[in-house]
Design a protein around this nucleic acid. Structure first.
Lengths: 328, 328
DNA sequence: TGATACTAAGTTATCGTTAACTCATCAACA
DNA sequence: TGTTGATGAGTTAACGATAACTTAGTATCA
């Protein structure tokens, strides 16, 4: 007990005793056992973050922002990767719950089994926040970018530039419905009375199914090639993210076409590389850091707070950044 | 005890009892407490990975490979980010040790305070593996890419193309000595009897000191601008990594110079974007996944194995990938 | 002088598991 | 019939910390 007091700096310990303890600690190379401590104290001052694809700047920016906000409040962060499969999502949740983290931030894509497990976890009163994921629960806060409006704005921008045949690259079959950016694209076309041509919507196929859960350069490259091979090819494409857009640019150039004269291209995310493409990429910026920061704050509010808090759901605005890939 | 047997599927339990336990488990929403379990069992089946900059593909590829290898063996992975500062390194170590992980893989850059703490940890017999980090200890395995030879090869490639004024971009002041790629560059120049011109070696400055620990597009961009403003500008540059190279390419194009005719550029890492630059980037590929995989295997060997294992130190070959940024 | 409060350190019980042990039952077999 | 071994389940004692309580000495003040 006295050792505990010295190590934690709590309670009354005389200088002499403290000194003796510290000497012994150093001598015996003593270190308090965190597990036992956490078990007794019923909290770990640790938060878990579950990320889908860690290779995506979206994830990494969120992670950095989360870490900063948390460490400012004395919490550590453990990140788990789930390559976007239900099984791995759940494994990540389990291992975090097993380590009794004080709360979990989930930034993977929705899936039924995962959502079910999340519901259990939320029911058990473990503080939970979801980022960019569809999930509803009385005691779970959620935060996301307005991908729908972002997709709408990107497409509208192309329409404003008089494009009528506008392709979409990066639709994976399994998430047609949940992909807000695609929905925004469809809505924009509808708003402007442009018929949807299914052949202009492309995405991950079996041939590139070995890639991570998000949309990559490869998907952009192959998707663009397919679009360009159409008899009536598009004059513009909206790529689901910047990586996909970069791949699409490569395919476009290889085909000897000019950007933006022959094909205009819009990306999404405004990753650092967007200003370095040739021409620089028009893209939709989403506030990644802010999402991470808010997620951390919301979680800490639940961790510190009372059990019956109002559910928060924040949708953050995106911003269209116009560059050379759409306007010469 | 019987519940423990049912939950873990160990020992003798009659079907009837098992059934009753399972019903009760479901009814009471029982979940075994991982902390208590780990405390008793003295192992967690969890491994920690400390990454420097999580935004770097180098880190993320390693993380993915580590995760795959570990999960195949039933271990979970907790990733901690340390933005390359001693303090954060140590905080990451502490929190992992506090959670009694079974081993730690460290992939941050060396620093004295961190190394000291690592030594303590290794002394306490916690299995440890370092990746791409200078660190020596009897019971710590290490793995890295041959950055020196990679840097040498990259530079030699430029020399072979008759370049004599070759710049280096991405040297940070604090790691001049430990930056193997820079050492390889210097050695190559020396080997070919080319005098080193300090003005051709550039890197992070105060003006861009707000960036993460690794070298970014911004550093490449600003570094290249500085090099181009020299009275006797280089005809080729070796950038410390692909991001830096991309930034350098942008600056070169802005100056109205042609790549590779006016300036040849070599990067390092062969990140996915290297084939998408214009022209495609000549770069040095390092086996990132293999590093992660081997790190995981080495760690598991120590975790499972006997206390007195030989120290392993592996240095993996890099490969020069020649593309359009050096050869038209 | 006695009540009060502060200081210092020891004792007990508990966090929630599980390893190891005990005990009882029952079947098989020599 | 007694020995052996498999089966089933309960008991005990840790794992290593700390909250809460107790004890005791000393200082403070009315």
């Amino acid at each position: 007990m006295t050792v505990s007091r010295v190590v934690n700096g709590t309670g009354y310990v005389s200088d002499e005793t403290r000194e003796r303890v510290l000497v012994a600690v150093k001598e015996m190379n003593y270190r308090r056992n965190g597990l036992a401590r956490n078990l007794k104290r019923q909290r770990t001052e640790t938060v878990g973050l579950v990320l889908g694809d860690i290779s995506n700047p979206y994830s990494t920016e969120i992670a950095n922002a989360v870490r900063e906000s948390l460490s400012a409040r004395g919490y550590s962060l453990f990140i788990c990767i789930s390559e976007q499969s239900e099984k791995e999502d759940i494994m990540a949740f389990e291992s975090l719950v097993d380590h009794n983290v004080d709360g979990i931030i989930v930034a993977t894509r929705s899936n039924t089994a995962g959502d079910e497990r999340l519901t259990n976890i939320a029911d058990s009163n473990l503080p939970l926040v979801v980022v960019g994921r569809d999930f509803r629960h009385d005691s779970v806060d959620s935060i996301s970018a307005d991908n729908f409006t972002g997709g709408f704005d990107a497409t509208q921008h192309l329409v404003d530039l008089d494009h009528r045949r506008i392709g979409f690259i990066g639709a994976a079959y399994e998430n047609r419905g949940s992909l807000k950016r695609l929905q925004g694209y469809l809505k924009a076309l509808e708003t402007h009375g442009i018929d949807v041509d299914e052949r202009l919507i492309t995405g991950r196929t079996e041939t590139v199914s070995d890639v991570p859960g998000y949309s990559t350069e490869k998907i952009g490259y192959e998707g663009m090639k397919r679009l360009l091979s159409l008899p009536n090819r598009p004059t513009a494409v909206f790529a689901r993210n910047d990586f996909t857009a970069v791949g699409a640019m490569t395919a476009t150039k290889e085909a000897g076409l000019l950007i933006p004269q022959d094909i205009a291209i819009v990306g999404f995310d405004d990753t650092p590389l967007a200003i370095h493409t040739v021409p620089p990429l028009t893209t939709v910026r989403q506030p990644m850091r802010l999402q991470g920061q808010l997620a951390a704050e919301m979680l800490l509010r639940r961790i510190g707070g009372d059990e019956f808090l109002t559910t928060q759901e924040r949708v953050l605005d995106c911003e269209l950044i116009v560059r050379g890939s759409t306007v010469a």
